[in-house]
Amino acid sequence: MDGGSRKRRRGLLVTVIAGATIAAGTGIGLWATDTGPFRDAYCWGTWQEHGGPGLLGDEPFGEPGFERHSTESAPPAPGRPQATCTVEVAASDADDDDHGKVTLTYGAVPAGAEERRKWISDYLHGSATPLPDGVPGLVAGDRGMIVLPAACDADGRPVTVTMWSDDMVIGRPASVGRMLVDAANQLMKQAGCAPGEELRMTSPLVKLAEDSELANKPLCRIPGLTFTLDKTIHYREQVGTVGDGLQTCSAWYGTRNVVTQPGAQFVMAGEPRMAALFTGLPEGADKGLVRARCDGRETVFYGDVQPGLQGHGQPDDRRVFQNFVTSVSKRIGCGATGGETTR
């Protein structure tokens, strides 16, 4: 009992000190763009090393024996809407090739249709969860994206801040979200397009993207989204979110989480900044992009059937897309059919 209470006393002392540290950090410290005396900062001062064990922990991921390196381009500026930065974590031991890299990007979404579709399939993937508190973006453990306000648009295309890693889990989706929000606020300031109020994310992620599963008929539980699936091929599907303003569905050929061949992607986006991601793509039911007014706002219905599933639609790919439009628009209570573009 005596020993126990002594331990508690020490715990209390540590608590008080740490409490003060946390309080100080909460105020301005974490927001400051220039580094404190003992902390390294990365990506134009956006991210700061901290006491936790995540990517930016003073020991990366709380593991001893790792080092962090960073490279950065010039920061974005008015008239220069692009920037890239990487943070790399590698074992300090030269014999150990354990490493991971995160890339942070500021820039307009790709102009070319093919590149844009690839971008959409990466960042609106079914593994990604929408951010809360009205922040227009999605996050997963290894990627994330926020669409910036229209004031940041470049060449008529929306500008986004993205995070991406090919080879590691950056953190929990919520942590990736917070890193992204911090980056977006910082980079918008540097680019000279920051809104009056900073982006804020205080709520937790109530629901995460579902786990991927074997592809179903219909795909992603959407009536009419039916493809002939070759029994010998391992197709998977993943539902990211099904809401009034956003619905995502990805299908691919490959193993549990490794996409070896993209299959198809379907998105409904009513939230204006999300819908903006599709502007500039060719439109029409035959091209997999139609717009309709749903609940007073323009809503985008998007379908991209990639080589892995092309020609597998029942009865055909175009009808499958129309079914997608009809089924989803019925769910959210609007009468789009995909038969024609309603304006």
Partner: peptide, 24 residues
């Protein structure tokens, strides 16, 4: 403000590198 402060706490539960799934 506090919520951002607690983000550090969040990383406390982060998945380690190499974890197969992105989900916590």
């Amino acid at each position: 403000e506090n919520a951002h402060g607690s983000d550090d706490t969040a990383t406390g539960g982060d998945a380690a590198p190499g974890t197969a799934s992105g989900h916590a």
